[in-house]
Simulated scan of single mutants.
Amino acid sequence: MFKEIPRIDIDEIVDKAFRNAKKKALSSKKNINEIVKEKESIRVTVAGETLAESLFKVVDRYPSFDRLPPFTRELIDIIADIDKLRHNLGALSFAINTINSVKIEYIKNIRRASSPQDASFLRKQCYGRYISILKQVEKNIKFLNNAREKLKNLPSINPDLYTIVIAGFPNVGKSSLLKALTNSEPEINSYPFTTKGINVSSFEYNKRKIQIVDTPGLLDRELSYRNPIELQAISALKYLAKLIVFVFDPTESCGYSMEDQMNLYNEISDRFIGIPFIKVLNKADLKEWGFKENIKGIEISAQEGANIDALKNNIQEILFNYFEEEVDYFEKDRN
């Protein structure tokens, strides 16, 4: 989406605009010596249109923020601040309109010029006005260029898919579980609000693609330790998650006690009210290390693949109920 937005360099687009204008004027079939005023009008027109088009490509290729899926909109807001994007895009739109107004004004003035020398002077004056307009929005262009760099690598998480989010403290085996559930290596994406990659993979259920996301750096420690951007990113996950698989490590070899893990589970479940949770007790292959069984959940070994089928069956039951409700809803809507 954002990779298609061009980067703006004022010197580059000015050079392109004036060069195109000169070529267009020289290509006139009429005798240049006799139509200096016509030549200068052409140069003013082509230069103005080239500059306006360069700015318009940026404004036009930004999506309508209000029409984006809530998760994507939240991400863009975290990364680049939608209000600031709107403000700076508005400044470019104003610049486009101003360039077009100046273009029309100078075409009229050149046509009324009393001599070829006056026409050339007016064309140069118009060029100066164009550059002045661009200088006025230089800060806005710089902001949008920076925003583009941040947004162009927006991770390939599809907010329209049914999404399972894996949560739990670091080192409890979330990445191993992701691989075990999907039988594939996850795609690792970068987010600007976490130093760790977001792992994304998928599997098919009844010809539907089910997306699984592991979010290291987000749902892996107490919310009280979060900064505002991380909290907003966690809130964005509310729009994405249809099911949360919370992974416990009852051996506590991850470095966190079961009490701490349960506290994190309670915090996250309180934040994601209305979303179903599955409790997974991982590292069942390491029971000789000590395996605290004071929490009910599905015992598995993601590393060894033990009891993964039981977890998949549980997930499929939830998927079945979800999609059956979806079908019932649409059938009632038709009636």
Score class of each variant (00 low, 15 high):
Y239M: 09
Y239C: 09
Y239I: 09
Y239T: 06
L240I: 11
A241H: 09
K242W: 05
K242N: 15
L243Y: 06
L243R: 06
I244Q: 06
I244A: 09
V245H: 03
V245T: 06
V245Y: 03
V245I: 15
V247D: 03
F248A: 02
F248G: 01
D249F: 08
D249L: 10
D249E: 04
D249W: 01
P250E: 00
P250R: 00
T251C: 07
S253C: 05
S253V: 11
S253D: 12
S253W: 00
S253G: 05
S253A: 13
Y256D: 02
Y256L: 05
Y256C: 04
Y256I: 03
Y256N: 06
S257L: 03
S257N: 07
S257P: 14
S257G: 13
S257Q: 03
M258K: 00
E259S: 14
E259A: 14
E259W: 04
E259Q: 07
D260R: 03
Q261D: 10
M262H: 01
M262S: 08
M262Q: 02
N263M: 08
N263G: 13
L264V: 08
Y265M: 07
N266W: 01
N266A: 10
N266H: 07
N266Q: 08
E267V: 11
I268S: 05
S269T: 14
S269Y: 02
D270I: 05
D270Y: 04
R271K: 14
F272Y: 15
I273M: 15
I273P: 12
G274V: 13
G274Q: 07
I275K: 13
P276E: 11
F277L: 10
F277P: 11
F277H: 06
F277Y: 08
K279I: 14
V280L: 04
V280H: 01
V280A: 06
K283T: 03
K283V: 02
K283I: 02
K283R: 01
K283W: 00
A284F: 07
D285W: 03
D285S: 11
L286F: 02
L286E: 06
K287M: 10
E288S: 15
E288C: 10
W289C: 13
W289P: 02
W289S: 15
W289Q: 14
F291C: 02
K292P: 01
E293I: 03
N294T: 10
N294F: 06
I295G: 01
K296N: 14
G297I: 04
G297V: 07
I298V: 10
I298T: 05
I298L: 10
E299F: 00
E299R: 05
E299P: 03
I300R: 00
S301M: 12
S301L: 13
S301K: 06
A302Y: 03
Q303Y: 14
Q303S: 15
Q303P: 12
E304W: 01
E304P: 11
G305Y: 04
A306V: 14
N307V: 09
N307G: 05
N307Y: 08
D309Y: 10
D309E: 15
D309A: 15
A310T: 12
A310G: 12
L311H: 04
K312Q: 09
N313D: 15
N314W: 02
I315D: 00
Q316N: 15
Q316H: 15
E317Q: 14
I318P: 03
L319E: 08
L319H: 10
L319T: 08
